[in-house]
C-alpha cells in the first residue's frame, strides 16, 4: 500500500511477504519476525486468559468467565476422551493448547489486511503478515512437534525394541526380505502425518488470506465513477461474506488440527 506504484502483483506479493531478519548465512538462517511476534503474543494472550482463571479456579459457583473457560476445557477433555480412553493428563492440555493457539492465530485472518498493513507501515515495518498460520514455519513447527511426541510415546509405550520391531515387521510380515518395504512404508506413514497436518492448516489459511487479498485488490480500483462504485461495493460485500464463511473455517481448522494431533498420538499408543 505504501509503495508509490501500486500494481496488482505488487499488492498481492507485498501482503505475502514476511518481515524477515537474517541470523546467519544463507536463505535458511533467517527468522520471520512477524510470525514469531504474532504467535508469541497470541499464545501468551490465549493461555494467559486460561491461566488467570486457573489461578483462582473455584469448585464452588463459577463466575461467567470461569464458566466459559470451563466450557472450553470440558469440550476439549470430552473430545480427547472420545478419541483416547487412556490417561489424558498430558494429551488433553496438549489438545487445549493447540486448539486455543491455532484458533487465535487463525482469527487474525479476520483482521482487515489493509488495516494491518497501514498500522504496521506506520510503525515503520516494511512488511507484516498478521496471520502466523499462513506461514508454513508455524504449522510445520507444530506438526513436527507432534511427530516428536508420536515418536516419544511410541518408544515409551512399546519400548525401543517393540517400536523398532513394529517398524520393520508391520504391516507385511516378519520375513527378513520384507523388512525394507515395511520400514519404507512405515517411514512414509510416519512422515505423512506431520506433513499433511501442517500443510492442511497452512493451505486453508493461506488460500483464505489470498481470497481476502483478491477482494481487497478489487477494492483498490474503487472510485467515484459508476464502475468504481460497483467495484468498491462488490469488494466490501464479498469481503464481508467471505469473512463470515471464514469464521467457520478458522474454528474448523483449529478443531481439525487438535483432533488429528490427538488421533496420531493415540495411535502411537496402539500396536499395528
Amino acid at each position: 500500500m505504501a509503495s508509490d506504484a501500486l500494481t496488482p502483483s505488487s499488492y498481492i506479493s507485498h501482503h505475502l511477504t514476511n518481515l524477515t531478519k537474517p541470523i546467519g548465512e544463507g536463505a535458511f538462517w533467517q527468522v520471520n519476525v512477524d510470525t514469531i511476534v504474532m504467535s508469541w503474543a497470541l499464545g501468551i494472550i490465549g493461555l494467559g486468559l486460561f491461566w488467570l482463571v486457573a489461578n483462582k479456579a473455584t469448585s464452588g459457583v463459577p463466575g461467567r468467565f470461569q464458566s466459559f473457560i470451563e466450557l472450553m476445557v470440558e469440550f476439549v477433555d470430552n473430545t480427547v476422551k472420545d478419541i483416547f480412553p487412556g490417561d489424558r493428563k498430558f494429551l488433553a492440555p496438549l489438545a487445549l493448547t493447540i486448539f486455543v493457539w491455532v484458533f487465535l492465530m487463525n482469527l487474525m485472518d479476520l483482521l482487515p489486511i489493509d488495516w494491518v498493513a497501514t498500522i504496521t507501515h506506520g510503525l515503520g515495518a516494511p512488511a507484516w503478515k498478521a496471520v502466523p498460520t499462513t506461514d508454513l514455519n508455524t504449522t510445520f513447527g507444530m506438526s513436527f512437534g507432534i511427530l516428536i511426541l508420536i515418536l516419544y510415546f511410541s518408544f515409551k509405550v512399546k519400548g525401543f525394541g517393540g517400536f523398532t520391531h513394529e517398524m520393520f515387521t508391520a504391516p507385511f510380515g516378519a520375513n527378513p526380505a520384507l523388512w525394507i518395504p515395511n520400514f519404507a512404508l512405515n517411514l512414509i506413514e510416519l512422515l505423512a502425518k506431520p506433513i499433511s497436518l501442517g500443510m492442511r492448516l497452512f493451505g486453508n489459511m493461506y488460500a483464505g488470506e489470498l481470497i481476502f487479498m483478491l477482494l481487497g485488490l478489487l477494492g483498490t480500483i474503487a472510485s467515484f465513477t459508476l464502475g468504481g462504485m460497483i467495484a468498491g461495493a462488490a469488494s466490501g460485500l464479498l469481503t464481508w461474506g467471505w469473512a463470515v464463511f471464514h469464521i467457520l473455517i478458522i474454528i474448523l481448522q483449529a478443531f481439525i488440527f487438535m483432533v488429528l494431533s490427538t488421533v496420531y498420538i493415540a495411535m502411537a499408543h496402539e500396536g499395528h
Partner: peptide, 23 residues
C-alpha cells in the same frame, strides 16, 4: 527457514505451560 525451530520450541513451551499450570 529457521522460524521453524522457533515455532517448534514455542509450541512445546506453550504445551508445557498449559500441562503444568493451566490444566
Amino acid at each position: 527457514n529457521a522460524t521453524l525451530f522457533v515455532s517448534g520450541i514455542t509450541f512445546f513451551l506453550f504445551v508445557l505451560f498449559c500441562w503444568k499450570f493451566i490444566w
